[in-house]
Amino acid sequence: MVAFDPPTFQQRKLQRKGSESVVRKSIEKALKLPVVRTMGSIFVVSLVAFLFIAYFFHLKTNAVSELDYTTYDYHIAIISDQTDNSFWEAVYASAQETGADYGAYVEQIDGTLSNALSMEDAINVAIYAGVDGILLRPTEGEVSEDMIERAYDHGIPVVTMQKDLPNANRQGFVGINDYFLGQEYGKQVLKLATQDTQLVMVLVPATTFDATSQSWFQQGLTSTVLQENIAFDFQIIQDDKGLNNAEDIIHSIAEGAIAQPDIILCLDETITLSTSPLVREIGLSDEIQIIGSSVSEAILLEIETGNLNASITIDPTELGSASVEALMTYIHYHMVSYYTEVDTMLIDHDVLLTYGEEAIDD
C-alpha cells in the first residue's frame, strides 16, 4: 500500500528533515553555552537537551501517524493537452472520485506545475513513476502513438479519452465517434433550419480534428442533413497559444469577403466563446444562429442571453468516470471493450429554464 495523497512522502521527509535540523541546531546551541560550574546549571542544560531529544524522537515516530493519509492500491496518471478549461476540470474531478471507489489515486501529472509538460514529457514522467495505468487525451500524430507504444512496452495499459488513436497500441477508447458527433450537430441543424436556410458554416479546430476526424464528422453531419438546398462551408481554425482565427472569419463575413451563413457550428469551447460574442457585437445575432460546444459558465451565459442557440458536449462527468472504469477493468481482467461510448449533452435555453445550472453541474 503506497500513500499518494499530497503532501508526498518526499515532502514529509523534507518536512521532518527540517524539524530535525531545528532540533539539532538548538541542541548544538545549548551545548555551546559557557562552561557551567554549578550542578544546577548542568541540570538545566541536560534537561533542555533531553527535551529536544524527546521531541526529536516524537517527530520520528509520529510524523506520519498524526496525519490522515489515505492509501491506495493503484496509481493512475491522467494526461491531456487541454487542462485549462472547465470541461477538463469536470472530467478530472469525476475521474478522481471514481478512482477512489476503486482504490486508485488518479493524478494529473503536471497538475502542480506552473508550466504544462509536453505530452511526451508527461508520459515519460508517468512511466518513470511506474504508474499502474494511463488515461490519455491524445494529440494527433506520431508522437502520441510512439509514447503509447513505449508505455505498452513498460507494461502500462493506456486508455484514450475523447479522441482516439485506433492505430496505436492502446487498450481501449472512451468517448464519442466523430461520425456520431456529426450526426448530433446535424440533428440540431434540422431543428433550427427553415425553408430559407441555405448555408451552414462549420468552424473546425485544427488541433483536435485531423483530416480523418474531419472526414468522419462531415459524413455524419451531411448524412443527417439531407436537404439539397443546404450547403456546408468548413473553415479550419488554427490555434496559436490560445489565439485563433475564428474572429478573422467573422469579420470577413461582416465585410462580405465570405458568404454569410445562416447557421454556424463551433466545435470547441474556445471557438464558441470567440464567435458568439463577436456575432452579437457586429449586429448579426438576428441573422446567424450558433450551435456551440462544451459547457462552462461563460457558455451558459451566452445561452441564457440568447446569443448562443445551444451547445453540444460530451458529458464530462461520464467521460471521467467511464475512462477510469475501463482502465480498472483492464487492470483487473486484462481485457476491456474496444470502444466505450459516452453520451452527449444538449444544452439550450429550454434546458436552463427547466433544470437550471445546478442540474447541469450535477
Rank of each mutant, 00 (worst) to 15 (best):
V23F: 11
K60W: 05
S80Y: 12
A30I: 02
L47V: 13
K32G: 06
T83M: 10
H58L: 09
F50V: 04
Y69M: 11
S86W: 01
L51R: 04
I78W: 01
F87G: 09
A54E: 08
I53L: 05
Y92G: 00
R37Y: 13
V48P: 00
W88G: 03
A63K: 03
K29Q: 06
Y69S: 12
S41Y: 02
Y92W: 00
P34L: 04
A95D: 01
L59R: 04
A54V: 09
T61I: 10
A95F: 01
V45A: 02
R37I: 15
S21A: 15
L33V: 11
V91Y: 02
V64A: 08
A49N: 12
S86H: 10
F57V: 15
T61F: 01
S65R: 15
I53H: 04
V64I: 12
M39R: 01
F50L: 08
Q82V: 14
A77E: 06
V35G: 00
R24W: 09
R37S: 14
Y72K: 03
V36N: 07
H58R: 14
T38Q: 00
V36P: 06
D68R: 14
F87V: 10
T70S: 08
A30R: 01
P34F: 03
Y92E: 05
D68K: 14
I53K: 08
T61H: 04
I42P: 10
T38A: 00
S21K: 15
V45E: 04
T38R: 01
H58P: 01
Y92M: 00
S94H: 05
R24L: 13
K32A: 08
G40Q: 13
Y72D: 02
K60C: 05
N62L: 06
S86R: 12
P34K: 13
A54F: 07
D81A: 13
M39C: 00
K29C: 02
A54I: 07
I78R: 08
H75W: 12
M39G: 01
F50K: 07
Y92Q: 05
